[in-house]
């Protein structure tokens, strides 16, 4: 009997938060648009993103090619749309990975303290000791230039962030009355951690996830930009910016601008979404 009323309450709460905060609504719609692009990019793209046509190379934006064409005559709009799958896919995969690994590690560190905390803290400190982008470069260079490795590298450099947020949030709840109450209800530490503490740190972790999504996209695009990520001719925003960069001096601005702007929009969208999500997932705002 409670489940339907809970769902109704949730829906009306989401509606309320979005109504109160139109920026979040905008970000959510943008996010949906990116998801559609990622899911159905091939269908949406007006041209084949890989088909080069040197006759049409370096054309400025026109009604046929809204974003213009690049040095090989490929349609930039199509490439920007198709690239969404690669970029958002990498970001989602890496964030999901680090959400699970960093979140659980931080949860354990904050809850058990002692040597568990010390070991996880040292690992996080060691990662933080490197300039993060250089570390990501090193990981990809060492393991090989593949998409799984980009995902892994992006996850690793975000690990300390997640572990620390989860640890701090767990520590403030470790002494809470409901933790003792759960022990009296027959929960052992492991179950208690997953069923009682974890749901309470979820809101802040989800916000963290949305904020680092943008960061992860930037990181993946950055790796590709310097040639350590996805390889041409695959359509990817970072590569496209890299390829277009050399043409800016000669006046062909559109090659780098449109993928760059899309990248920026994606990062922006995830950051705004983070704030809105916090309001939605926090039950205390549900009045």
């Amino acid at each position: 009997m409670t489940s339907t009323s809970t769902i109704n309450a949730t829906v009306s709460h989401i509606r309320f938060v979005l109504g109160e905060n139109p920026v979040t609504l905008g970000a959510a719609m943008l996010f949906a648009a990116f998801l559609v692009m990622a899911a159905a990019g091939g269908v949406l793209a007006p041209y084949d993103p890989l088909a080069s046509d040197t006759m049409r190379a370096l054309q400025a934006p026109t009604w046929q090619h809204w974003f213009g064409t690049d040095q090989l005559g490929r349609d930039i709009l199509s490439r920007v749309i198709v690239a969404a799958r690669v970029d958002i896919g990498i970001a989602l995969a890496s964030v999901t990975l680090v959400f699970a690994a960093g979140g659980l590690a931080g949860l354990a560190a904050g809850f058990f303290g002692g040597w568990v905390d010390a070991v996880i803290g040292r690992i996080a400190d060691n990662i933080m000791a490197f300039p993060l982008f250089i570390l990501a470069m090193g990981i990809v260079a060492a393991l090989g230039n593949t998409i799984p490795n980009i995902v892994l590298a992006t996850a690793i450099i975000n690990f300390p962030l997640y572990a620390r947020v989860a640890r701090a949030e767990t520590m403030t709840r470790r002494e809470a009355g409901f933790v003792d109450a759960a022990r009296l209800s027959g929960h052992r530490d492991g179950a208690l951690l997953l069923t009682q503490v974890l749901p309470n740190i979820m809101p802040i972790m989800v916000v963290q996830m949305s904020l680092t999504m943008g960061y992860a996209i930037l990181n993946a695009a950055g790796l590709s930009f310097i040639g350590l990520g996805v390889r041409p001719p695959t359509a990817e925003w970072g590569i496209m910016v890299a390829e277009g960069a050399s043409f800016i001096v000669s006046g062909e601005w559109w090659i780098a601008l449109f993928p760059g702007a899309t990248l920026m929009l994606a990062v922006f969208c995830f950051n705004l979404l983070g704030d809105g999500l916090r309001d939605i997932v926090d039950p205390r705002r549900r009045t």
Partner: peptide
Amino acid sequence: RAHIQMVFQDAGESINPR
């Protein structure tokens, strides 16, 4: 465990907010 139970000081804080 079931035979020794407790009512906590601050009911607001001792019920999991979720």
